[in-house]
């Protein structure tokens, strides 16, 4: 089976089944359970194209969580890389009755925690600032203000305790429900709500001097 990857891989990719001749070609969604199962089977068999398809389907989600959790692009790259290596080595452990997304999110969360345990230094965000300065003149001020606010929030989020930070990232970067977050971090939805509430209060307090 040959998996061809298209240009926009963020949530979709192109699959071509090839048994000597091309039999079908269709745009597939990463949320399509059957397709994901087929790709996972391919990964289990060591099919490099299947792994590439899985990577393309999930790379942005994995990287986004890693970046928002660590607050550091270099750390985010390390975390994302580690996550995909874990995915590859543990794909045999995944049971199809469970949600693949939740399973993968757990890998990302574990990689984030592992990275933090290694004692990585947090570096300030510079990419957004550079983009803002390079923007057209009329929007520079607005962009700078927006970027400054985002950086301040990101910096404060990066200083939250890990159990607060991860629920904030999963909630606001991935838009997950309390139930989904609970399944990923291994606690009850009530605990998720409590941690989010606590994190909101901490963020309000720490960001209040700038309002």
């Amino acid at each position: 089976m040959l998996w061809k990857t298209g240009k926009d891989f963020s949530r979709s990719f192109v699959q071509t089944k090839d048994h000597g001749a091309v039999t079908s070609s269709m745009v597939l969604d990463a949320n399509d359970r059957d397709v994901i199962e087929a790709i996972i089977d391919g990964c289990r068999r060591g099919d490099a194209d299947a792994f590439r398809a899985l990577f393309e389907a999930y790379k942005d989600r994995v990287y986004s969580i890693a970046l928002r959790y660590s607050g550091n692009p270099a750390a985010a790259m390390d975390i994302a890389q580690d996550t995909f290596l874990k995915l590859l080595s543990r794909i045999g452990d995944y049971r199809s009755e469970a949600s693949f997304d939740s399973w993968l999110y757990r890998l990302v969360v574990n990689s984030c925690i592992d990275d933090q345990r290694r004692g990585r230094r947090m570096a300030p965000f510079l990419d957004g600032l550079i983009d803002a300065v390079c923007a057209p003149a009329e929007s520079v001020l607005h962009k700078l203000m927006r970027t400054e606010t985002e950086q301040r929030i990101q910096a404060v989020v990066a200083k939250l305790a890990p159990e607060h930070r991860i629920v904030i990232v999963l909630r606001y970067t991935e838009g997950l429900s309390y139930d989904e977050i609970a399944g990923i971090v291994g606690c009850s939805p009530g605990t998720v709500a409590s941690r989010l509430n606590r994190a909101h209060k901490i963020l309000e307090r720490r960001l209040s001097p700038w309002k």
């Binding site: 990577f55 942005d60 928002r68 985002e150 989020v157 963020l203």
Partner: peptide, 26 residues
């Protein structure tokens, strides 16, 4: 606060070099 968080923590696109990193690590 929630709308500020939504804006500040929006998803991003992974850098193209991530695939190379994963491949070389493999």
């Amino acid at each position: 606060m929630k709308s500020e968080l939504n804006l500040a923590l929006h998803p991003v696109t992974a850098p193209p070099e991530l695939w190379e990193r994963v491949q070389s690590a493999r």
